[in-house]
Design a protein around this nucleic acid. Sequence first.
DNA 1: TCCTGTTTATGACCGAAATCATAAAGCCTG
DNA 2: CAGGCTTTATGATTTCGGTCATAAACAGGA
Lengths: 198, 198
Amino acid sequence: MITEKLLESYQAARKKYNKGETIFEEGNFPAHYYQIVSGEVKMCNFNDDGKEFVQGFFHDGQSFGEPPLFLERVYPANAIAVTDCEILLVPKTAFLSLIRENAQVSLAIIENLAQRLHYKSVMAAEISSQEPEHRLLKLMDYSITFFKIEKGKDGHRIDLTRQQMADLTGLRVETVIRAIKSMEKKGEIQIIGRKVYR
Amino acid sequence: MITEKLLESYQAARKKYNKGETIFEEGNFPAHYYQIVSGEVKMCNFNDDGKEFVQGFFHDGQSFGEPPLFLERVYPANAIAVTDCEILLVPKTAFLSLIRENAQVSLAIIENLAQRLHYKSVMAAEISSQEPEHRLLKLMDYSITFFKIEKGKDGHRIDLTRQQMADLTGLRVETVIRAIKSMEKKGEIQIIGRKVYR
DNA sequence: TCCTGTTTATGACCGAAATCATAAAGCCTG
DNA sequence: CAGGCTTTATGATTTCGGTCATAAACAGGA
């Protein structure tokens, strides 16, 4: 999102994380700006009895964990490497100078935050008041529209496991599996080789 | 949040809305930046069978409905005047010029979006995986910490009706009423003259 | 002060999703 | 290609919050 060159001129450090490794934890104060060079990261919460809720997945070129950086606040969730990752870290103060000194970057940040807020608004309304099938369709349609999924002859292929869909919608795997089967029967989606197409 | 003077130099128009009036609707493309001069506004969704989910309440000096303005997207929710309101509207293009030409304003916008994203992250995790009492306590504690509620001798007074708490947490009034009673018994909150104190 | 609408309250009942248990099907990886 | 982990699948049972009905308490306006 921000060019590596620019980040490097503001003390960016390159760091590797192994699959499954925690990058930062819920409740801690932020110290860096994080931008993914390669790999996949998820931000998630665990409730009192260990159930996971995924706030979002992040990929190459994307940044994550900025909001608390701009407020004097702690992280609302954990960041965990889903695959092996290479990530650029910029110290908080250097990063704040960077955006103050580069107007076009703040516009990019605004767009980025706006996009994430939009996603959260849509999903919050869904999770709080719609039935499982409706929630899942919304998640799929949102993913298709905004995460540029390529369309094949069978429709868009949703590259999420049932467990991931459950964690993103606040449902349980079994419920997701049953809902998906039911939607297939209704012809709202297709299942080919266990993958969901829409 | 942005001074009235500055907004006025970018074609701001003053408009009055009556209590209950719709300011903009879910699904429409945004045409303005909205900043409240006086009154209260809520952003909300209605699910298929009419149940309301409140994304947030907004007051004097606050702006709302910006995210879709920065993306080419429609509003994810409705904006409705909770009380009679006076609101400043700045046309989209004028507003985009405004932030491009006033660096300190983009920083303010970033902080604003970051704060809202933070709230949504916290509540999304709650709504998706915690029990009613836990959700309500989180809503109360969040309101206390970030909406600067004054502390009296009986604790912080939560100025929300049970219906509003229900709409903010995705629960039903009856559930909120029962949960609040139960929490009072446990001594986690106090009820004085039907109002909740914590 | 009365009247009407809103907010809080409470009980009975229901149902959908969570939970629990178990297993088959895929898929890596050594 | 065998063995083990992950993912998908399915049935039985339970539970908690939603739903429905009803009413009391309160607030605000005429």
